[in-house]
């Protein structure tokens, strides 16, 4: 509130940053969901998750390049391109995440918890290095094919792309919510997250359920990868490392394992980062430092997060 008290305070700028933060936050939330769902079910911080997100950005870039998409589209061409890239991104990250679980985590499921964590870090390096080999260590431009128009409300500018990102993210979150709460498979997933042994005793196939969790978490990161590339109009082999850490912070802020928490945490971190960019002196340089300062503060003062952790019951 002291910000509002400042004499030269520009409310227009303030709301513009809130709007930027919401767009960024929607992307963080989609990625944070993957961290939180995986942690909720096998208590593993999937360190490779950010890189799973990044692989959606580089694979969809290649598809866009192969189709010679290099100008703003409209009508069916736009809808078709969006659908194609989203499907490719979702399949890439969803499939990759399932594969990683199968190869790098499942054989270690009964090992001490540090062991799969090290495996996750190893997978992260592999994904980054292969991406670097393929796409070089340069920042590569992502084609701008989405209309760059915007609507203005007073001094507030909202681009069509921001609206698209927000609507897509919310639609995916609502879909996830319906799936986990209203379907039999979603219920089995929640049961497995609470007590895998008891869920198996109901007849749930635990391995399949864990694969499904990785598939959904990866798919959400894949969708995020497509819209993030469009938003940043660039692709970089380490983008998943930075964004992944921020999304992880969002998941911890909301309460790890808690699906609603990841969404809340994602939007909050996005907004805080945007405001920090504006109001912290030399803010752009500090914006990510702010995210990690938040992570440290939560871990000290409220380790269970804003909405509470949801981890498997201890028997």
């Amino acid at each position: 509130m002291h910000i509002l008290a400042a004499s030269s305070f520009d409310t227009g700028l303030f709301f513009q940053q809130i709007e930027n933060g919401i767009t960024l936050g929607a992307i963080y939330a989609l990625v944070a969901l993957g961290y939180t769902m995986v942690y909720g079910i096998i208590e593993l911080i999937n360190f490779a998750h950010g890189d799973v997100f990044m692989w959606s950005t580089i694979v969809t870039l290649s598809v866009a390049q192969a189709l010679h998409i290099d100008h703003v589209l409209g009508g069916f061409a736009l809808v078709g391109t969006l659908l194609l890239l989203l499907i490719v991104g979702i399949l890439t990250s969803g499939g990759l995440n399932v594969l990683i679980e199968r190869v790098a985590y499942r054989p270690l499921r009964r090992a001490p918890r540090l062991i799969p964590l090290i495996s996750a870090i190893g997978v992260s390096f592999i994904l980054e290095n292969v991406a670097q080999l393929w796409k070089t260590a340069n920042v590569i431009a992502y084609p701008v094919f989405f209309p760059t128009n915007a609507i203005t409300i007073g001094s507030l500018t909202i681009t069509y792309l921001d609206i698209f990102i927000f609507v897509l993210a919310v639609a995916l979150m609502v879909g996830l919510n319906v799936f986990t709460n209203r379907t039999k498979m979603g219920r089995a997933m929640r049961a497995t997250a609470q007590d895998p042994e008891a869920a198996a005793l109901m007849g749930v196939n635990i391995n399949q359920t864990i694969s499904l969790t990785f598939l959904i978490g990866g798919a959400l990161a894949g969708a995020a990868g497509v819209v993030y590339s469009m938003y940043a109009s660039s692709v970089y082999f380490l983008s998943g490392f930075q964004l992944g850490l921020i999304a992880f912070t969002a998941a911890v802020l909301g309460g790890i394992g808690n699906i609603q928490g990841a969404v809340l945490g994602g939007f909050l971190i996005g907004i805080i980062e945007a405001l920090a960019t504006q109001y912290v002196p030399n803010g752009l340089a500090w914006s990510q430092g702010v995210a990690f300062a938040i992570l440290i503060l939560i871990l000290i003062f409220r380790p269970s997060g804003l909405l509470g952790q949801q981890v498997p019951d201890k028997v």
């Binding site: 929640r190 049961a191 609470q194 007590d195 042994e197 008891a198 869920a199 005793l201 019951d313 028997v315």
Partner: peptide, 11 residues
């Protein structure tokens, strides 16, 4: 019916 009931507490 497992020992210690093991109901799904968050359901």
């Amino acid at each position: 019916v497992p020992e210690a009931r093991r109901v799904f507490s968050r359901m």
